[in-house]
Write a protein that binds this DNA or RNA. Structure first.
Lengths: 244, 244
DNA sequence: TTACACTGAGTTGTCAGACAACTTGACCGG
DNA sequence: CCGGTCAAGTTGTCTGACAACTCAGTGTAA
């Protein structure tokens, strides 16, 4: 059964393991050697390497070799990966617990309607606490066709994202996220126990399924100082392989 | 001269153009058809597609086809691409001008020394103004071996990043960036004309060359409300092709 | 009619081997 | 000492083939 489907994953992991043992500037073995060592064809190996190159972790120079720019591990823990707050908090060494939460059905606003295309939406909010005080306030809004109130409450561990991933039904792909520092509105200030108008970090995301449909809208507010988000940015413009 | 070197770039652009004309959920032509249409082999085409797949723009399903998740253009304007503030501001429709700036040589702090490995560093700071008031304060610190004060001042247009890119000498690769909402220190508050302790958005970056060496440290502070950063996040964990 | 196994066309995944383009260092002749 | 030439090693690309998979359609049996 399915040796094949897992080949690229296995290879990706092997290559990642190798990279994580190397330091920036180190040179990788040549492609023929690597492909033989991993037991795959050179074409397959090259595709795997390409993923790391796209992420800016390695750099290839024709006639010279392939070099490590950044070992992984850094970016695998970065913002570019979408994950639940619980996972994130654990990573950055913050002990968190879920505070008050709310699950209810609400009518869609105009902007929500245009994106989610349903008049009634499931609204889930929750407060994340650390060191005894609220540090984050998370809100998710999604169509009832994706997730009903009863279904969620039957097995609600805290994260809507985790729930959807576990169920696997709408296979999730990406989230387009906007990062801002904003002055809090009243209902958010109340949840976080801060003054209305205080500045917090806001992540506003649009979650897409693999089919390209909008699955959910999320809005997360973080108290300054408790969370730090990392990100690996690549040099754009005229550099090789880049668009435009 | 060099037909080859530009092939993958050309193909990448062509494929990007094609994707930008499609909508989420659309299906791409099959790989044999596409490779013939673009005049490249299937292997080469697949490597190009892999870059888009890595970025979460398309999804491939064995036995079914390849589908558009996100057309590009969205993420080409995103945070994952490192670019100068001037370019960024123009993109988001904000007219900016450079205010006061400062270029001087400073002794390295302990943390700077461990990263940049030089006792004396070039420090460049500048204020960005929009609508007649300061909205961002940018600081760059880099070794004198990378850039001397005289060299920079001879052709300083405002952005150290643009300068380095134009010169091309240390070929830049990536920047590891940390995003936080923090209370301002005094010198930053003074530059931005706000109260010490007010919350601003901070991007702290470590710039790496293609060889993996640390080229510069940057610290940018943004006034809330003027800048919004976008980002395309991919679903992590157990999903296909992901590490771990 | 309905349920189910099967088949076949079309797709992506992987493979092997080959050649082209490029870089680098060594070698050699001036 | 300098510069040109060459050869080895590397990445880039091509070709053709086969494997694995999905899905719709078909036919058969209940």
């Amino acid at each position: 059964m399915s040796h094949q489907t897992q080949l690229s994953q296995r290879l990706h992991r092997q290559l990642g393991d190798l990279l994580s043992e190397l330091s920036p500037g180190d040179r990788l073995p040549s492609e023929p050697k690597l492909s033989k060592a991993f037991g795959v064809s050179r074409a397959t190996l090259r595709e795997a390497m390409r993923t790391f190159e796209t992420q800016g972790l390695i750099q290839r120079r024709q006639g010279v070799g392939t070099f490590v720019v950044h070992p992984p591990g850094v970016m695998d823990a970065g913002l570019e990966v979408l994950e639940s707050i619980e996972t994130l908090a654990e990573r950055i060494g913050l002990e968190v617990s879920m505070g008050a939460y709310e699950v209810e059905v609400r009518p869609a606003t105009a902007s929500q309607l245009s994106l989610l295309k349903e008049p009634e939406l499931l609204y889930v909010s929750r407060v994340i606490e650390a060191e005894g005080r609220p540090v984050a306030f998370l809100e998710d809004t999604l169509p009832l066709s994706v997730l009903s109130k009863e279904e969620l409450l039957a097995d609600f561990t805290g994260s809507v994202l985790d729930f959807l991933l576990k169920r696997g039904d709408p296979s999730l792909a990406t989230s387009e996220t906007e990062i801002q520092a904003v002055a809090t509105e009243t209902h958010i200030a109340r949840a976080l126990h801060i003054q209305c108008g205080d500045v917090v970090l806001r992540l506003q995301g649009t979650l897409y399924s693999a089919e390209g449909a909008v699955v959910a809208l999320s809005q997360s507010h973080f108290l300054p100082g408790y969370f730090r988000f990392r990100l690996l940015r690549r040099v754009g413009a005229l550099e090789k392989g880049q668009r435009f």
